[in-house]
């Protein structure tokens, strides 16, 4: 079960500005889904290793050889705010 405070905390971690309405709906929906999902916690999984990859591959490495980079004009063309040949943002230190 997720309460409103937990939903707000998670939304803050995920940088989502949920409306009051959504917070309530999210709490109910996520709780419902989690109720179902939580059944896996009843399984006996002692000593079972976790699987993060199904493929059994290690050490896929790249030689330290430079490859061409993108042109600045190309990448800045997509920028919501262009500032001084870079990507503008509100300053993290602004009041």
């Amino acid at each position: 079960m997720l309460d409103h405070a937990q939903v707000l905390h998670v939304a803050r971690l995920a940088r989502l500005e949920l409306s009051d309405d959504e917070v309530g709906r999210m709490a109910a929906e996520l709780s419902h889904v989690l109720d179902h999902i939580e059944k896996i916690r009843e399984l006996d999984l002692d000593g079972v290793p976790p699987t993060s990859h199904v493929i059994d591959v290690v050490n896929v490495l790249r030689a330290d050889v430079p490859a061409p980079s993108l042109a600045r004009e190309v990448i800045l063309a997509a920028a919501p705010e262009r500032l001084n040949d870079g990507f503008g943002v509100p300053s993290p230190g602004a009041a």
């Binding site: 896929v60 490495l61 790249r62 030689a63 330290d64 050889v65 430079p66 490859a67 061409p68 980079s69 993108l70 600045r72 990448i75 800045l76 001084n84 040949d85 870079g86 990507f87």
Partner: peptide, 30 residues
């Protein structure tokens, strides 16, 4: 594979991976 650089003009050493473009993937430097 972007070359390391110091003092080069800003944003001239980027690619989909180090710019975090959608769909780009990392590969470890040996």
């Amino acid at each position: 594979g972007c070359a390391l650089s110091w003092g080069d003009p800003p944003n001239t050493h980027t690619c989909p991976t180090c710019l975090g473009l959608p769909g780009a993937l990392p590969v470890v430097n040996e």
